[in-house]
Design a protein around this nucleic acid. Structure first.
Lengths: 131, 131
DNA sequence: CATGTAATGATAACAACTTCTCATTATCCG
DNA sequence: CGGATAATGAGAAGTTGTTATCATTACATG
């Protein structure tokens, strides 16, 4: 049996990072966010916490093309993602277009689908000017 | 100015691999396919050829969530991809569902989108039986 | 509050993929 | 054909992201 988990301010800070940011975070992003609460936090602890949160169902992995894996709180239901090419942040997007399943070639069995939108987020869009 | 390119049987074999397979290939897949034409072919040569083909517009990169980058012949037009979880091969799929752009959150600027279908390809589906 | 032990932080070690190095080979052009 | 040099193959070396090691710290319980 696995060792009993202890509650620590580090894990609390990491969990809180995902909850407060409200978008999928990479381990590095989670580290930076959580460090505002626990300054000395190390990246190894973030990886350990994420692994534990995946196991206990707190987080789920979000894989994106050409980017490192992000993680977000579980239980959000079916949704997709938007990647900003300026800040590299990933955002959740609601909804799902109709007829996605119709793309499936004959003889293929569709089990899941993912949609990734790309562009510039509202924050970066305002800051804009330069390309 | 860059050195003048020479035509070699290795590059021909690699280009032919992409043309004959008709689907996005990883460097490793391209190597295996091209080795049927040039047995001694090395992986370094495949990487060098791909880099050159990207530069001269012969190939384009296809990035997928949680998978190594694939490459395919350029000029295929807008399309999406299907990943088989059994054989890990990637296939092109025609078409594009309507209203994808409507998912974009307010204030965000959409520039592109990608759809990845997942499941089992027709080849693996027949071989099936086991899960 | 004393104690057993899970958790942490820093860093080394991994793993997967890609690029570099260099001696050798092949291509191209006069 | 002969020479200049681009291309190749094999393996070393880099990258980037993740996991393991280990001495130290901090939970949590009696």
């Amino acid at each position: 049996m696995p060792p009993e988990a202890r509650r620590t301010q580090q894990k609390d800070a990491i969990r809180e990072a995902f909850a407060s940011e409200g978008r999928p975070l990479s381990p590095q992003e989670a580290l930076e966010s959580a460090q505002s609460r626990v300054p000395g936090l190390g990246i190894a602890t973030v990886y350990r916490a994420i692994k534990r949160f995946l196991t206990d169902g707190t987080l789920v992995a979000v894989e994106l093309p050409g980017a490192t894996t992000r993680y977000e709180l579980a239980g959000l239901g079916h949704h997709h993602h938007f990647c900003c090419r300026r800040c590299d942040r990933v955002y959740d997007v609601e909804g799902c277009p109709p007829r996605v399943a119709e793309l499936t070639p004959d003889g293929f069995e569709l089990e899941a689908h993912e949609i990734v939108l790309r562009g510039v987020c509202s924050g970066c869009s305002q800051t804009a000017a330069t390309t």
